[in-house]
């Protein structure tokens, strides 16, 4: 058992090992923060835990005089709303377009090169165009997310459609299925699990686009808040917000995994 790949950690040591990097990072931060505060009590770059608690309780519990809302929750709902609308539209567009273009040869020949090119356009580069055409409101933010991730989902769905064995499609035809019936009864159910994974993989990009759009123009939102308080070096707000965004992303990822596992036929793989 000399080789590193053959040494396996036990269940308990796996948990301990997994927790260690988190503990190390937090400890390193605490030590560095203390050291900086010992030199300069007014240090803003690495605030201590008390500063986080004070700043966050203000944002979470106190009503802001300007907007009449609790800012933390207003920001969270604004960003989640944008993300949800963008992801939802992208998923529906990706599913419908991906299935039709992937399954019908004439549509495929017409649109596949176009989508391949479209998915290579950097979305942030067209953000100014979106702002000019759709204004600075919610519409341009939703369009940015859709523009950023729908081409990826379309291509992924098309790939999954192409993976369905030809035998199944021929069999369906010998059972009397029309093109529409095959889309509804054979293609759609087998593509759905892949759509869920595809949306899951797009989460990171979707957050990127939400925060980028909010950084430029918004009245509320997690990304808006971070970029707003950046001017005051308010690390006591920025760091908790980053942790909160990370947690939200993790929770959404986990929820999508549960949805995937809830689709009965994903549990039984071919050859099982």
């Amino acid at each position: 058992m000399g080789r590193a790949i053959n040494r396996l950690p036990s269940r308990r040591s796996k948990i301990l090992l997994g927790a260690m990097p988190f503990i190390l990072v937090i400890a390193a931060y605490a030590i560095a923060s203390d050291a900086r505060h010992a030199v300069d009590a007014g240090d803003k770059l690495m605030p201590g835990l008390d500063a986080f608690r004070a700043a966050m309780s203000r944002l979470i519990f106190d009503i802001d005089r300007m907007t009449g809302q609790r800012l933390f929750w207003a920001d969270t709902w604004a960003s989640l709303g944008r993300l949800g609308i963008g992801l939802g539209i992208s998923a529906v567009v990706g599913l419908v377009v991906g299935i039709f273009v992937g399954f019908i040869p004439y549509l495929r020949a017409t649109f596949e090169p176009f989508f391949a090119a479209l998915s290579l356009v950097p979305p942030l580069a067209v953000l100014p165009i979106l702002f000019i055409i759709f204004g600075l409101g919610e519409l341009s933010k939703a369009v940015l997310i859709v523009f950023g991730i729908a081409p990826f989902i379309i291509r992924d769905v098309m790939l999954r459609v192409a993976e369905i064995p030809r035998e199944q499609i021929v069999k369906a035809q010998t059972l009397g299925a029309s093109t529409w019936q095959m889309i509804l009864g054979v293609v759609l159910p087998q593509v759905l699990p892949r759509l869920v994974s595809s949306v899951r993989l797009s989460l990171g990009a979707a957050w990127l686009f939400v925060i980028a759009a909010e950084a430029i123009t918004a009245e509320a939102g997690l990304g808006y808040r971070i970029f707003l308080v950046r001017r005051y070096l308010a690390m006591d707000v920025i760091l908790p917000y980053v942790v909160w965004i990370t947690f939200l992303a993790f929770a959404m990822d986990y929820a999508l995994r549960l949805i995937y596992d809830a689709i009965p036929w994903t549990r039984f793989r071919e050859g099982g």
Partner: peptide
């Protein structure tokens, strides 16, 4: 000129639907 219900088929593999 396309597969029809008058001719049924059983392939070596993949001729049932895994999602049903």
């Amino acid at each position: 000129d396309e597969p029809m219900p008058d001719r049924g088929i059983v392939f070596q593999r993949y001729s049932v639907f895994p999602h049903r």
